[in-house]
Structures are given as C-alpha cells and as structure tokens.
Design a protein around this nucleic acid. Structure first.
Lengths: 193, 193
DNA sequence: GCGGTACTTTGTCGATCGTTCCAGATAGCG
DNA sequence: CGCTATCTGGAACGATCGACAAAGTACCGC
C-alpha cells in the first residue's frame, strides 16, 4: 500500500448532499462540490468517478441516514399508531427544522433525475418500497389485532401514507409552516381510524 | 408600425413547457428551447427577456391551463364529493396519461426553483392557495349541510387534500402505476367521511 | 532511508452554457 | 412602390461546464 486517503469519504458525501439538496443536480457544478467538500476535482473523480457517481453515493447515504432509521422505527415492535405518528412528526421536523430549506433528496431526485438515470430510479423505487413494506407489515399486524380500520387493505394504507409523506415534502418546500403541515399530517393519520 | 410578430407566442410557451417538464429548469438549455419552439434564440430573448422570463411565462400558462380549470370545477356548484373525486382522478390521469412521463411543473418548480427565485415561489404559493381556498369553500359549505365529516376543520381538510395531490405527483414520478395511485387517492378521500 | 505507490493538487481541455449582436428578411405606412 | 421599423435566424461572445492528465506529495513495506 501507499499513501492513505486524507479526507473522510463520508464527510465529503455529506457535504455534497447539502449542496445537491439546495441546488438540485443540474444546478450543482463540480466547482460547488469542490468548495463544499474541500477537495480538488481530481480527488472527487478519483473517489467517485463522475458527478453522477457522487450523486449516487449521496443518494445511498441519504437512504442509509434517513430512510433506514425510519424503517427501523416502524419495525421496532412499538405501538403502530405511535410509531407512524412519530414518523410523520419527524418528517415535518425535518422539513421545517433548520432555516436552510434543504429539499428532500428523494423528492428532488424523483422530479429531476428519475427519468434520466435508471440507477437513480432503481434506488428511489427501492427506498420507497422498503418504507412501504415496513408500513405494510406494521399495518397488517395492527389490523389483525383490531387496532386500526380494516376498511382499506394494508397495502393501500401503506401506499397512501408514503404518498402523504411525499406530499408534505412538497408542501413544505412551497410554504414551510410547521403548524399547518402538522395538521395536514394529523388528517392523514385519521385514515387509520 | 412595421413588421408584426410571426410566431404564436402561446404555442412557443407550450412547447417550452414540455421541455421544462421533462428536463427540469437547469437541465434545459436555450438550445433545447430553440429546437422545441422552432425559434431562434434572438426571438426568444426579444419576447421573454431571458431563460427565467420564459420559465415564468411557462409557469403562468401551466397555472392557467391546469390549475384554473380545477378551481373552476371545484366552484361549479356540483356535488362536493363528486367534484373532489374528479379532481383526484383527473390528476392520476394526468400523471399516467401519456407515456412521456412529464413531471408536474408545480412540484418540479417547488423542488428546483422555489428557493432560488422569489417570483417562482410567489406563483407557487398563489397557485396552491387558490386551489386550497376553492377546496375550503366547497368543504365548509358541505360541512354545513352535513355532507362530510366535521371532525376536522375545512381548512385542514383542504390543505390535506392538496398535500395528497402533490404526493400523488411524486409517487407517480417514482412509479407510474395507475391502479395503485387510484387506490391511494381513494384512501385520501375517506378522510372526508 | 529508500523506492514505489496511491492520493492530492493544479492547470487545462473541448464542449456547452446563457446571452448579445448583427445582417438579412418582411410587413405596414405614406 | 419605396421606406423603415420590426422581426428573424444564426454567428459569436466570455464564462463556465464536466472531465482529465501530469506533476507533486506523503505514506508504506522493505
């Protein structure tokens, strides 16, 4: 072996994520990424191959950092209504949390990149799918125990809840009003009754 | 006076809209716009001033062509549940209609442009606001007549419904499954019960 | 401590970006 | 019918794009 990598790869991906979230994919230049990560463009190309490669790495980190914990929470075995509510509140917090107005990478990627890059599309489908199936398992179990309505199939309810989460992201981008978003989330949750 | 404008301004904006919807704002070049509209860049700059100017014109046309008819339908005085269902079905149709996978300009603009251009942000807020208030009027009236649930305020219900519509757009971009989207829409509508 | 190797930096590549300008074409007015 | 104001398409602008190659640097095994 030889010289070791000097920078923290994860930290670089993390910095790149903020840029992509605030400027979008096309709106972000390699120069932006260089400044944000503190790396020369050569290092970026050595580590990720291309701008696309870095974007995919960002997408994977986003999934690992935000989507995976949500799935874990849903599969924690706690009260179904409570954990679902927690997921919704957490999402609203994430949207309105800091003043930086960082868009959701998933929604942004869905709009801007999904139709251009099949690898992006795959990751998006996989991410929403894992969230949906975690919700499905939780809801199906809860229906068996009579804890939530059986008017609708667990499949439909799970898909609807994910749809609502995506909708909250969009609404939050247009008007980041925490109270309003929370009330919309509450309405969505009444579909479980 | 002298020579009159030869091309149809509305047709040009319409063609530009398709490009922006499929490539996003940053992903669209003036070259793309020239080819789509059939105009030289000189004519575009003479008519719209800049790429931003054309984008704003596209946004206005989108609002006039898609949002306004929705509002009209909601205000047509017909049965509340029926017209709301029609709006949702129409949205699902629009998402899955043609195979061109044209993203929703509103959602795309929310993600990509709202934080960069205040004029875009204003138009987005105004568009969702007019949809929301049309829904509000319809729902408030329906609540008075006991046609829908009064568990939630008409304000919250209206906001929730718009949120659901946005969510459907995102889900449709990830996976344009007409039947699934329709079922998610149905679940959203049960919140009126 | 030395050679080799992997990583970082820097400078630059052709292409393309949004924009501007100009020469030619064209339609209305006297 | 000629004049001229306006429109048109395309050439050309400087800037910046993503990408890359070469040179410099720090670390490892020996």
């Amino acid at each position: 072996m030889a010289r070791t990598r000097e920078f923290d790869l994860d930290a670089a991906v993390n910095a790149a994520m903020d840029v992509f979230r605030s400027k979008g994919y096309e709106g972000t230049s390699m120069r932006d990424l260089s400044e944000a990560t503190g790396l020369g463009s050569g290092s970026i190309y050595a580590a990720f191959g291309s701008k696309d490669g870095l974007y995919l790495a960002v997408l994977d980190l986003y999934r690992q950092r935000y989507a995976a914990p949500m799935v874990d929470l849903l599969r924690s075995g706690r009260d179904p209504r409570a954990v679902i509510r927690e997921v919704f509140i957490g999402t609203v917090d994430d949207i309105t949390g800091d003043g930086r107005h960082l868009a959701c990478l998933i929604v942004g990627a869905s709009m801007e990149r999904a139709h251009q890059d099949v690898r992006v599309a795959e990751r998006l489908r996989s991410t929403t799918q894992s969230l949906e199936s975690a919700l499905y398992d939780l809801l199906a179990e809860a229906q068996l125990r009579g804890r939530i309505s059986t008017d609708r199939s667990a499949t439909d309810l799970a898909g609807f809840l994910v749809t609502s989460l995506q909708g909250l992201r969009v609404m939050g981008a247009i008007n980041p009003d925490r109270e309003a978003l929370t009330r919309y989330a509450e309405v969505a949750l009444t579909c479980l009754d």
